[in-house]
Design a protein around this nucleic acid. Structure first.
Lengths: 231, 231
DNA sequence: TCCATATCGATAAAACCTTATCGAAACTCC
DNA sequence: GGAGTTTCGATAAGGTTTTATCGATATGGA
């Protein structure tokens, strides 16, 4: 069951790796601007607060190759990451829900650098419909389905109130959406071929708060009881 | 080396679990409103698109106990999650950077429900300083350090431009911040006792896009190269 | 030229998270 | 009241991600 040598199926890259690649990309871009030709895992790891071995494995996953004692060629590695992450091929995306969060996303300048193009936003508020925000038109929500279909939009950003989340999702799915970036605190029910990436802000904040509490207890135990620093 | 029975050290709960707990919480609240007294893992799992065994393990981590054939007591389980996640004890938070994203976070109504209270925002734009947004004052950035110290603020939301990220972080750390919720696409350098939760939106979107690409290749390979209805 | 050192690639070990299995408890229906 | 079924809790198996180890290679300096 080993992959045949010329099996072109991209080996699935672990999600944690995918999330780190943009950091490497950004840092290596900085190195390019500093006119460095090579960059080593050690340097990357130190700068980003990561483990050097992990960095090496991550870069390996992109297909980048390095040279012992020298490191990775800056240009070649940037290319490898771009190629791997698909920063080249521009994707058109729809934003659904032009509330505060939606507007913040519309205004976000960074998308284009990574090959994303938010072409339009949709909202049900008549006061917003017909206007523009950050140069993007805000369209009537009822047109969403039709436009997803006709423009073959594959990715949608869901930034509507939680109460509307599933309804809008159903619309999107029926219109043929392939992936949803979900900013609502709702678990969406979708057919298994539709991808959902949850961005649950409250959950993240809760995690942070809980970890903080843990660390507080731990350090309290360490510092108070004197020696038994653990167990 | 089993923990002694009355060891009160909270067993560190896995981060994936922490991220799922808010979903359980929300759903079980719904069950309470529907006047149900018990809820089972099976029900939860089905509603949220998760694995029942996983739900059970997650709930076990909170200390909630269930009864075979009956399920978990709604009230008791809500309490357990609240207790575990610290929804009871209100945390005061500062927001740094009142741009589009910062404003969206300021306007977000959900924080208070989970025990968070954004007390003020900070920005360096004189046009914003002195105004209010969503009832929260926007203060001069130079006062950040002093107020973090005096008010014993432990958590800060970082929503400044990437260029300012590390500088502001250093200020926060010196002022004694304990945790940073980082919305900039930068890996922050902090002492190890300071917690950072990264919320790298571009990274998440990249992941989604890459997974979409993978699934496309896969399904293309599987489903005969029949009739390409698109592309 | 040769040695010391930094770094890569590959493979192995460890840690962590998810999924499976199984016995026991408790409810329902006969 | 007993059989059947659902569901829990505990433990084990499986998978994935992180960290470690080790030989090989390239560079710089003696």
């Amino acid at each position: 069951m080993s992959p045949s040598p010329n099996d072109l199926t991209p080996v699935a890259i672990p999600e944690p790796t995918l999330k780190r690649l943009p950091y490497y990309y950004k840092f290596i871009q900085g190195q390019r601007e500093a006119r460095r030709e090579f960059v080593s895992c050690t340097t990357l790891a130190e700068a980003l607060g990561l483990n050097a071995i992990q960095v090496r494995k991550d870069l390996q996953a992109t297909g980048a190759v390095g040279r012992p004692k020298v490191g990775y060629h800056v240009e070649a590695t940037l290319d490898a990451i771009e190629e791997c992450m698909g920063y080249h091929n521009t994707q058109d995306i729809f934003l659904v829900g032009a509330g505060h969060l939606g507007q913040a996303l519309l205004a976000y300048p960074g998308f284009s650098e990574f090959g994303f193009n938010v072409v339009a936003a949709f909202d049900s508020d008549p006061a917003k419909v017909g206007t523009e925000f950050a140069g993007k038109p805000i369209l009537e929500a009822s047109r969403l389905s039709d436009l997803v279909r006709r423009m073959h939009i594959q990715i949608a950003i869901l930034a509507v109130p939680a109460t509307a989340a599933q309804t809008v999702t159903d619309t999107l799915v029926q219109a043929g959406i392939r992936a949803i970036w979900n900013f609502t605190p709702t678990r969406l029910a979708v057919p298994k071929e539709v991808l959902v990436q949850d961005e649950n802000l409250l959950a993240s904040l809760s995690v942070l708060s809980k970890q903080l509490e843990n660390s507080r207890v731990k350090s309290h135990k360490e510092s108070t009881h004197g020696k038994p620093e653990e167990l």
